[in-house]
Amino acid sequence: MIALLVEAASWTFLLLGAFLVLVGALGLVRMPDFYTRLHPAGITDSLGADFILTGLVLQAGFSLVTVKLFLIGAFLFFTSPTSTHAIANAALVAGLKPRHAVVPPRPPEKATQDEEAR
């Protein structure tokens, strides 16, 4: 009985993770410019991967594999946000301005200038 329950739980986690990864991929395609695309990439990296990992942990049960999965989870926990940060930082340093930058209230023609400047 318990096995059935655990099986169902892992499958739900896996499917949920897969769905999130799909959403992330779609997001990457649909998003207009670079900075906005970072958000869906973040989704696939963090949440999607975690759900799949927990699904697998449930599949594997108490064994060495679970330890390895946790290690992978920890490693991802560190690296994915850092890599997103690094990419965003590099883009900013390279001078890529976000397209619809929320600019404090100033005359409209300035904003259009920004449009042309970029």
């Binding site: 490693f75 560190f78 690296t79 850092t82 940060h85 690094a86 930082n89």
Partner: peptide, 15 residues
Amino acid sequence: HHLVLRVVTKVLIGP
């Protein structure tokens, strides 16, 4: 000026 990278790298190199 990449503070975040320096910290994370220090953490990761060991593992």
